[in-house]
Computed example of a mutant assay.
Amino acid sequence: MTLLDSDLHRSPSAIVLIPVFNDWEALERLLWSLDETFLDRDIRVDILIVDDASIAPAPTELKFFSFKAIERVNILELKRNLGHQRAIAIGLAYIAANLNCKVVVVMDGDGEDNPQDVPRLINCCQAESNAKVIFAKRTKRSETYLFKAFYLVYKLVYKLLTGHHIQVGNFSVIPYQLLSRIVVISEIWNHYAAGIMRARIPYTEIATKRSNRLFGRSKMNFVSLVTHGISSISVYADIVGTRLIISVSVVVLLILISLGGIVSIKLFTSLAIPGWTSIAVGILCSILMQAVMLSIVFALMILNTRNSYGFMLGQDYYYFVSKLKEVFSREVLSK
């Protein structure tokens, strides 16, 4: 895959990375909002849209737009649909391999990540001497009460299984100097934010409010949301497995103590044993066998996780890239 020579010699202040699947109407409005946000600021911005094998074609009228702050808009087309997390991972790998800038902004294309917060994230990154990833921590969400309830359950399960809190999504700013470290984190293939946290990349969070979609309705259904949650937990597979082994071991110990108590009463006392005791013992033995089997399965999963190499994003991303298409350039318009 070739790269335009001009890409190697120009260096915008920021590259905004936006994964998109069919949500072109919302994206157009987001680009206008971003352009207005950066218009009065001395920030050169390029946009890299990762088209996650959309069914609906990308709009052709972007080349006629008259952006004032946005220098260039490129679409990186993928060969197949991979999902937002993997589209982000491929976009980051592409930028690290082919482009240069000061910071990379990662945000969704539906407008729920408020463009007005982008300068705040960039300023925070500069205040941290470009040494930390800056995540937007959502203090107020715009979803339904049912979604919020499930989200609380997800955070509780995440905390119990991994031992960590998670209150951030994709919306973030990455210093370019950290990008080479991030694209070798195979875990971001499953979950971008959790992968960075698991790899102990320095990061901090700033409070933001989630905005409303700019157009249409979310295409995420309940199954997709559950899959997304499981993907974030899978980043900590070995820790989750270890915690489950400990939990199962505690259950096994309690079962053995219960069985020992029943046998002791039967052999060493004159107390009457109820008729249901034999049924209870059978149930406990069945649970014990299943607990032991689960422990073995978890142990094998941990060994497999620790002994196998993950997907090498930095060197393998291009297998999924179809082509890079320039859809807007101020340089072309000025000629």
Rank of each mutant, 00 (worst) to 15 (best):
V16M: 12
V20K: 06
N22P: 07
W24A: 03
S33C: 05
S33H: 10
D35F: 01
D40S: 15
I49A: 00
D51T: 00
A58D: 03
V73Q: 06
N81K: 11
R86W: 06
R86G: 05
I88N: 14
G91V: 04
Y94I: 03
L99K: 10
G109S: 08
D110E: 01
D113Y: 02
D113C: 13
Q116N: 13
Q126A: 13
S129P: 10
A136T: 09
A136N: 06
R141S: 13
S142G: 09
S142H: 12
Y145F: 12
L152C: 14
Y154N: 09
G163K: 00
H164N: 10
H165A: 12
N170R: 10
F171E: 01
Q177G: 15
I185E: 04
E187C: 03
E187G: 06
I188V: 08
H191K: 00
A194L: 03
A194D: 00
M197Q: 04
T204D: 01
I206H: 09
K209Q: 15
N212V: 08
N221T: 02
N221M: 00
S231K: 04
S234M: 01
A237C: 03
I239Q: 13
V240T: 10
V250H: 14
L253Q: 04
L253M: 11
L254Y: 12
L259T: 10
G261R: 05
I262D: 04
F268S: 14
P274H: 05
G275H: 13
G275Q: 14
T277M: 07
S278N: 12
V281I: 11
A291W: 07
V292S: 02
F298K: 04
L303S: 12
N304S: 11
F311W: 14
D316H: 09
F320N: 09
K323R: 08
F328T: 02
